[in-house]
Design a protein around this nucleic acid. Structure first.
Lengths: 201, 201
DNA sequence: CGCTAATCTAGAACAAGTTTCAGACTCGCT
DNA sequence: AGCGAGTCTGAAACTTGTTCTAGATTAGCG
């Protein structure tokens, strides 16, 4: 389907779209190498052949840039998951499986994950719109995995939010070396049990 | 690179202890006013009547300083809670009540909360020891509220971790204006249901 | 006491995020 | 074509976290 960017305000010209892409690419590349600190605005500008001022016109801060990078990556992840949805019987198992799949993808690029997650949780109010987009994408991925018959109830939305909270925070503790991969898995599976709980009640 | 940051290795003299206190006080004060950004190292140094280099000897980075500030605040919170423990019947209710009490305390100083939480989630590996201390304190608070008959099982520890994840992440979304107070409450109560789940199963 | 090592201070210096500005370039339009 | 508004560039400047240095001060000890 259409992988259109969100901004509805000003339609970008071809060259502008290309610039934007180059920037995001450079950002992801630098992040993959050295994590959050390695994404230096001057270097991103240089690597994407754009003036520093232009970089800042496209992304008003380093955090904006990295959150946009995360949007990009999540979108890809979402499509990948769409193609091969989890097969398990129970919704909670499907969600856990989905998140573990995403987790394995992040493990392949831990530095990139570090950059994106740190930016996401460090973001202040000025980035809330962009962070919200990421959140909605994550919610969509989880809801997809749940395959609800109808629209989610308020209670189910709360469960999804709690799963997201756990997901983000567990990743952060893993990235900072305070939790093992196994522990993240256990915690994800634990929080997914809330799904059964609301299905039954 | 002297080896004497946190570990109780070298006992501090009176004057050193006083300096440390002044620094933490200045940090909390500045944070209360303007949040994370308002805690500027030069200003902390000035307000606590300490040279910049000394400040860095006591706290090797801004994040270290703010995480230590959080330790300080949490400790107070823990004692306050010890004095008036939650009265409710069900463990899950007691935990939810406890966290909501802490939440209300944070609401009184939202800027301070912002500074501490942003530092906590932004912390990289070099701060993991200090972050871990905060995490253990939080765990202790939650376990206190649960009032388990014996030592917690592995499963219960996972539940506590998930609650902590939710707690931190929910606070972050609240601080960045993406979730209401009511929503945080709902999510906390939701995740606390996991306690009943493991008590029953 | 008087010595020595550690600590503290003031201040400069450095690094990276962010802002600013003058001039060159593009785009959409007529 | 040619014009005007908006965009891009290159470079310098500014801000704040962090590091470094040289000289004063302090703590502990014989």
């Amino acid at each position: 389907m259409a992988t259109e960017p969100k901004p509805a305000s000003p339609p970008l010209t071809e060259r502008q779209e290309a610039r934007r892409r180059r920037i995001l690419h450079a950002s992801a590349q630098l992040a993959s190498r050295g994590g959050f600190d390695a994404v230096q605005m001057r270097e991103v500008a240089e690597n994407s052949q754009v003036a520093l001022g232009t970089l800042y016109r496209y992304f008003p801060s380093k955090v904006h840039l990295l959150v946009a990078t995360m949007q990009d990556q999540l979108q890809q992840m979402h499509e990948t998951l769409r193609k091969r949805p989890p097969a398990a019987e129970a919704p909670s198992t499907r969600v856990a499986e989905t998140l573990m799949r995403a987790f394995r993808a992040l493990q392949r690029e831990p530095q990139l994950a570090d950059a994106m997650l740190r930016a996401l949780t460090f973001a202040d109010r000025s980035v809330s719109a962009e962070v919200d987009t990421v959140s909605r994408l994550t919610t969509a991925i989880i809801l997809d995995a749940m395959r609800l018959p109808g629209p989610p109830t308020a209670e189910q939305l709360s469960v999804v939010r709690v799963i997201e909270h756990t997901w983000h925070s567990a990743l952060v503790t893993w990235l900072s070396g305070r939790a093992s991969i196994a522990q993240v898995k256990i915690d994800i599976e634990m929080v997914c049990r809330l799904i059964d709980l609301t299905a039954a009640g």
